[in-house]
Every structure is written in structure tokens, then in C-alpha cells.
């Protein structure tokens, strides 16, 4: 095959994949704007009615708030638990990293249903609200993702030497952490937070199994709507998709901004 022909084939495959993946999204989006769309190739008319209806419904606001708090709480707990561990591993004791890498992939291997059964059996007798169990479980499930993202923040610079240098210059460990570690892992921590937030925001399996109808999150609501009101559910899907696209965009911007060394230094100079 000539190089030209192989490029054409590659392009063809990519175009096909793109259409295959994008069509459902585009159709869903169009559907969310259409007055009605049955037995015709194109919708009869366009409207924003579904959007205003959904946004106006108290149910929507409630699920949004729940998902949002779930995401926020999980992110805070995950950061509070894992950032010190990753910091310790990178700065005080690099040898533990190989063990950590093993531990952090464990959640991948435990199916949600087993985790939930285990958690319920373990905590059923104790007077702990299920919502707390849920948040802790989701934080745990986010571990592989959060750990990796946080660990990436420590790549590329000798943080151990920087931290020890600050101590030798007379600073306390806490101040050294605030002055020389935090400013240089900011971007990485921000990425880790956004990733953790997004994954907790969209969590379905654990929430549904553990609390189900008692704590309706965006995802659960979305599946319920799908069965009852197609158009409303397509509106929700569209909103959710745009939200994810927005987060991805922010992630890309952060990474671009900080991967160029000059940018990061100029940024520092502005202060």
C-alpha cells in the first residue's frame, strides 16, 4: 500500500469512528431542542421548552445539588486523605511508592456490588448514616484515579530535595510545605480534584445500590427520566455532556498552561 493510500484508509477509519460516536450525541442534542420528533427524518420544530421545564422543576435542582455535594465532599475527603500520603511517599520515603502503586489499583478489582454488600454488612449495626458510608466508599473507589493524578503532580522536579532544602534554610516542615511544595504542585492537584469531582459527580452504581431512591443523584434521575420522558432525559443528557466537555476543556487548558515552563514562571512573576 502506498503511503498516500494508507493515510486515506486511516482517515476513513477515524471519520467513521467519529461519526459513530458523535451521532448519538448530536441526535440527542437535536432531540432536546425539538417540539416533537416521531416518524420523520427531521424534527417538526425547535423549542427551548424542555429546557425551561427541566430547569424550573424542583426535582432537577434537588438532584443537581445532591450530585454536586457528593462530588465536592468526595473530592475534599479524597484530597485530605491522599494528598498527605502522596506527599509523604514522594518526599519522605520514596521506597513506599511501589507498595502504594499496588494498593491503589485494588479498588479497580473489587466490583461495586461486592463492595456495597461488604460495606452494608460491616456497618449495618453501627449508627452511621448511609450517606457517610457512600461518600467514603466513593472516595475509596476514586483512589486509583486520584492517586495517579496526584502522583503525576510530583513528577519532573526533585521535591524531596526542595523540601529538605527549605528545612535546612531554617523553615518548619509545615511552612516549607506551604511555600515550596504547594505552589509547585498546584496544577497537578487541581487536575486531580477535577477528575475526582467528575467521577464522583457521575457516580451511579454505588449510589443506586446503597441508597437508591432515597438519595436521587443526577445519574439516577437521568435513568429514571429515560424510562418516562424521552425529551426531558435528552435535555439532561445534553446538559451533562456540556458539563463534561467544559471540565475537559479546563483540564486541557491547565495542562497546556503549566507544561510550558515560561508560562508558569511568568505567572509567578505577576504576583
Amino acid at each position: 500500500m502506498s503511503p498516500k493510500a494508507s493515510t486515506r484508509v486511516a482517515r476513513g477509519i477515524i471519520t467513521f469512528l467519529f461519526i459513530y460516536l458523535a451521532t448519538p450525541i448530536v441526535v440527542t442534542m437535536i432531540y432536546s431542542f425539538s417540539t416533537s420528533w416521531v416518524k420523520t427524518i427531521l424534527p417538526n420544530g425547535l423549542t427551548l421548552k424542555w429546557y425551561s421545564e427541566l430547569v424550573a422543576s424542583p426535582e432537577f435542582m434537588a438532584v443537581l445539588l445532591r450530585s454536586f455535594s457528593l462530588g465536592l465532599l468526595t473530592t475534599l475527603i479524597a484530597m485530605a486523605c491522599f494528598l498527605p500520603v502522596v506527599f509523604y511517599a514522594n518526599v519522605y520515603n520514596p521506597q513506599v511508592k511501589s507498595h502504594l502503586r499496588f494498593i491503589t489499583v485494588l479498588p479497580f478489582t473489587i466490583p461495586g456490588i461486592i463492595l456495597v454488600t461488604g460495606l452494608i454488612q460491616l456497618y449495618a449495626e453501627l449508627p452511621i448514616p448511609k450517606i457517610i458510608i457512600l461518600v467514603l466508599a466513593i472516595s475509596l473507589l476514586s483512589l486509583p484515579l486520584t492517586y495517579q493524578a496526584l502522583d503525576n503532580a510530583f513528577i519532573g522536579r526533585d521535591f524531596r530535595a526542595m523540601f529538605e532544602q527549605a528545612l535546612v534554610l531554617g523553615d518548619s516542615p509545615f511552612k516549607a510545605f506551604v511555600k515550596v511544595i504547594i505552589p509547585n504542585i498546584r496544577a497537578g492537584v487541581l487536575v486531580a480534584m477535577l477528575l475526582t469531582f467528575t467521577s464522583a459527580f457521575g457516580e451511579y452504581v454505588l449510589t443506586n445500590l446503597l441508597l437508591g431512591g432515597n438519595f436521587e443523584t443526577l445519574k439516577i434521575y437521568m435513568y429514571r427520566l429515560m424510562r418516562s420522558n424521552g425529551q426531558a432525559s435528552s435535555v439532561l443528557t445534553t446538559i451533562y455532556f456540556i458539563f463534561l466537555a467544559f471540565i475537559s476543556l479546563i483540564l486541557i487548558l491547565i495542562m497546556q498552561h503549566y507544561s510550558a515552563p515560561h508560562k508558569s514562571t511568568k505567572e509567578g512573576a505577576k504576583k
Binding site: 530535595a161 526542595m162 528545612l167 534554610l169 518548619s172 511555600k179 515550596v180 508558569s264 509567578g268
Partner: peptide
Amino acid sequence: RSANQRNIGMVFQSYALFPNMS
């Protein structure tokens, strides 16, 4: 004594400059 109480200077092999500071 802890490292920040010794009045000893140290220059690291990797320089360990703080990249966020001028």
C-alpha cells in the same frame, strides 16, 4: 537537633532551587 535548628548550610546535587520563586 532538627534540620532547621542547626545553622548548617547545604547545597544539593540537584540544586533544589524553588521554581516558583525568582
